[in-house]
C-alpha cells in the first residue's frame, strides 16, 4: 500500500513522543543554564598552575624549565625565567617563572603540556565559563590567574591528584634518603680522610655537605 512506510515511521515517532512522558531514557534534554549535568572527573578544559601550601607565589611548583612552552602545539604559553632562585617544596633552590602567560583563545586543550611537565606543575582545569567582551586581554591569563592550590586540584581530579601526591612524596623521600646517604658517605670518607691523614692537618667539616647537587626530580633533559 502506498504510504504504508510513512505511517510506520510516524508510529515510531509517536512512540518516542509519548514515551518521553513515561521514561527518562527517551527524554534526554537538559535545560542547560538552569540544569547542568555532573562533570566527568576526566574532563579537561584549560591548564592551570599548581601551588603547594598557602602562598601562591612561593608554593608554585613551576621551575620555569620551558618544556611546556616548547612542546605546546599551538604555542600559547609564554614563560620568562627568573634571574634568582627560590627554594622549592624540597628546599632546593630553583628558578621560578617571573611571567607565565597562557593565551586561552589559542589553547586547544590538548593537555600535551601536562604530559610533558616533569614537575607536575601544570594540570588541566575544568572551568569552562569564560564569557567576555574583550577578545584579547581578558583571555590572556597571567601567573596569578593561573595559580590554583593543590586542594583545588584534589577537588576537581581526586584520583589523579592523589596519584600525583603519592608520586611526589615518594620522590621527595627518595631524594631525602639519597641526600642522607650521600651525606653519610661523605662524612665517612671525610672521617677516614681525617684519621688517615696526620693529626696535625685539620680537615674542614663543611666539605661533605657541598656534594649534594643532583636534582631531586628527573626531567629537563636535553632542553
Amino acid at each position: 500500500m502506498l504510504g504504508e512506510g510513512i505511517i510506520k515511521g510516524l508510529a515510531e515517532t509517536a512512540r518516542n513522543f509519548f514515551g518521553s512522558y513515561l521514561t527518562k531514557e527517551r527524554l534526554t534534554t537538559v535545560q542547560y543554564p538552569e540544569e547542568r549535568l555532573p562533570q566527568n572527573e576526566a574532563f579537561r578544559n584549560f591548564p592551570f598552575l599548581v601551588f603547594d601550601g598557602a602562598d601562591s607565589e612561593a608554593g608554585l611548583r613551576c621551575v620555569s624549565c620551558h618544556i611546556c612552552e616548547k612542546e605546546c602545539p599551538p604555542k600559547c604559553i609564554f614563560i620568562e625565567k627568573s634571574k634568582d632562585k627560590k627554594p622549592d617544596a624540597v628546599g632546593k633552590p630553583q628558578f621560578y617563572p617571573v611571567v607565565f602567560d597562557i593565551d586561552v583563545s589559542v589553547c586547544m586543550s590538548c593537555q600535551i603540556c601536562v604530559e610533558v611537565c616533569p614537575f607536575d606543575a601544570i594540570k588541566m582545569d575544568v572551568e569552562y565559563d569564560y564569557p567576555t567582551e574583550d577578545r584579547f586581554a581578558a583571555l590572556l591569563f597571567n601567573k596569578h590567574q593561573l595559580a590554583k592550590s593543590n586542594d583545588y586540584y584534589h577537588q576537581i581530579h581526586p584520583t589523579e591528584a592523589s596519584a600525583v601526591d603519592a608520586a611526589l612524596a615518594a620522590e621527595r623521600e627518595s631524594a631525602a634518603a639519597k641526600a642522607a646517604a650521600t651525606a653519610a658517605a661523605a662524612a665517612k670518607t671525610a672521617a677516614a680522610k681525617v684519621s688517615a691523614e696526620s693529626r696535625a692537618v685539620k680537615a674542614s667539616p663543611d666539605s661533605a655537605v657541598e656534594s649534594i647537587t643532583e636534582p631531586p626530580l628527573s626531567g629537563g633533559d636535553g632542553l
Binding site: 504510504g3 512506510g5 510513512i6 510506520k8 515511521g9 515510531e12 518516542n16
Partner: peptide, 14 residues
Amino acid sequence: DEFERLLVGNEILM
C-alpha cells in the same frame, strides 16, 4: 531497529 523502522520502506525516501 528503531531507526530502521522510522524510515526504511518510507516511500518518499525510496
